[in-house]
């Protein structure tokens, strides 16, 4: 039996913070509090343990080790105290997967209409995975994909199924 196109694994231990603010006004304050540069539209900036993803023109997602979440929220709230902004802990609302392997992009290409060739190394694509909302970006050897907690089992099912051994997208 051939190998799966990629290994699909659920990842625990990540904190996530939604930040809504006027990025042109509050960008510097956010960057300082988050410890990361503000990403350009549809990009994600990262320093290894933390990532800051562009979700919409007035929304960022800070992804960090779970234990750092409370302090990061406090830092952000303090930094944005004088601004109109919304900061929400969404760590528990998400499910995170890693899709790692030589053919990881085949797995994503079976579930999302996103144009993967056009996804830069630091690109973050919000799209759908089969019938549920998802966002994904590149990591070493594949992709990291986030979806909603309630549909984690569904996501796992469709990702595993897309990674079915022998079902690579290369022409036969």
């Amino acid at each position: 039996m051939a190998e799966a196109l990629a290994t699909v694994a659920r990842l625990d231990g990540l904190g996530m913070i939604t930040i809504r603010a006027d990025l042109s006004r509050s960008g510097d304050a956010i960057a300082e509090a988050a410890g990361l540069a503000i990403p350009d539209a549809t990009r994600i900036s990262t320093d290894g343990s933390r990532s800051l993803g562009w979700m919409s023109p007035d929304e960022l997602l800070l992804i960090l080790p779970a234990q750092e979440t409370p302090d990061a929220i406090a830092a952000l709230e303090q930094a944005l105290a004088a601004e109109h902004a919304l900061i929400a802990d969404v760590s528990d609302a998400r499910a995170v997967f890693e899709v790692i392997g030589d053919h990881a992009s085949d797995v994503i290409a079976k579930l999302s209409p996103a144009h993967l060739d056009a996804l830069p190394q630091d690109g973050l694509r919000r799209s759908r995975a089969a019938q549920t909302a998802a966002a994904f970006w590149r990591v070493d050897g594949g992709f990291r994909l986030i979806g909603f907690r309630s549909t984690a089992d569904y996501l796992d099912l469709v990702l595993q199924s897309a990674a079915c051994p022998g079902s690579g997208l290369a022409p036969r």
Partner: peptide, 11 residues
Amino acid sequence: PYCGLDAEETE
């Protein structure tokens, strides 16, 4: 016009 992405109808 916000992301600059070509989105297909299902998105």
